[in-house]
Design a protein around this nucleic acid. Structure first.
Lengths: 111, 111
DNA sequence: TCGCAATATGAAAAATTCTTCAATTCAACA
DNA sequence: TGTTGAATTGAAGAATTTTTCATATTGCGA
């Protein structure tokens, strides 16, 4: 397998490797949301959120449309939901038996 | 959802966000391998590979056992295969129609 | 026991990513 | 037109991650 593909995959995962960006994706799982609402749920400054949204946009994981005075974000593809689920499965495995985070992960899975 | 969980998820993805580490995981998909073999397939210095293997070990994604003169690595859980597959699906979506990487991704999926 | 091959480790320098802040854009509306 | 609220951008410093190099460790065979 040629080199650039690894790079593309690594870049993709690296994009997910940030707490604010993960939170955005999880919030968007439930449907499109304006920036203002994301900002309500994520404790971070507006400009910082914007930076992270820009990263997600560049990577193509989310798309944004302007609606009147606000900008509404949504997931670019529903497959992202599967990915997050697969990640949770692994995280659960990894933490099982040793973990304070375990209860939280399980609670979330039951949602 | 409390804060540390996002952190754990982000850390997890960040671990995958490195070309050498991705390659290692994909090679291990086909079964356990000694470091020496990984080194044959990945163009990187031995000490660099060791560093990346250490990251994967710390995160718990792989495990290592010593076998005589060599150290054999394997995936900690087969769920990782699902995760990589989900990622490929998304990457395919994202690149479709615009992409030089597309052919490679499809070839790989057909393996 | 010596020496060699295979891996791992620690630490410093190089590179990348994050956060923050000031400045900017754009639409809505008085 | 001017102002205001919503969101983005650019740039600089802070923080984190990668790479590299020198040095260790381990097990094996001479």
């Amino acid at each position: 397998m040629p080199v650039p593909l690894y790079q593309a995959k690594a870049d993709f995962f690296r994009t997910l490797g940030h707490p604010v960006r993960i939170r955005v994706l999880e919030l968007l799982r439930d449907g499109p949301r304006p920036v203002r609402e994301l900002l309500n749920e994520i404790e971070v400054e507006a400009s910082n959120l914007s930076q992270q949204l820009a990263v997600l946009r560049r990577t193509g994981l989310v798309s944004a449309v302007r609606e009147g005075g606000s900008v509404v974000y949504s997931l670019a593809t529903p497959d992202i939901v599967d990915l997050l689920a697969a990640a949770r499965r692994i995280l659960t495995d990894m933490i099982t038996g040793q973990g304070e985070l375990l209860a939280e992960l399980q609670a979330e899975a039951a949602e």
